[in-house]
């Protein structure tokens, strides 16, 4: 940076911290998929199909996640956002 830049500079947003946040999210997501068993995508799809039989939802209203703890315990977390109108 030269002296001229110094006078011109006003506070720029810190883009590195944005990059870091975005990466932490995407990497956590990637790692979740990596550790999941092979049948997981299929199972997730079928769960969504079953719910769809009863309520109209889109795929992004359902989150199915498998969390693995250190002590041999896996938790299947199913989160469905149901639409307002019944």
């Amino acid at each position: 940076m030269s002296l001229l830049d110094y006078f011109r500079s006003n506070k720029k947003p810190n883009t590195a911290s944005m990059a870091k946040e975005r990466l932490q999210i995407i990497v956590a997501h990637q790692r979740g998929e990596r550790d999941a068993p092979d049948y997981f995508p299929q199972m997730k799809q079928e769960i969504i199909e079953v719910i769809r039989k009863y309520v109209h939802i889109s795929e992004d209203q359902v989150s199915v996640q498998l969390d693995q703890n250190d002590n041999n315990l896996s938790v299947l977390e199913l989160n469905v956002t149901l639409p307002d109108g019944k």
Binding site: K12, N14, T15, A16, S17, A19, K20, L23, Q24, V27
Partner: peptide, 14 residues
């Protein structure tokens, strides 16, 4: 200046 991920950032993520 916060324009680039730092060594520590990348270490922490990976």
């Amino acid at each position: 200046t916060g324009e680039m991920l730092s060594v520590e950032d990348v270490e922490e993520i990976l």
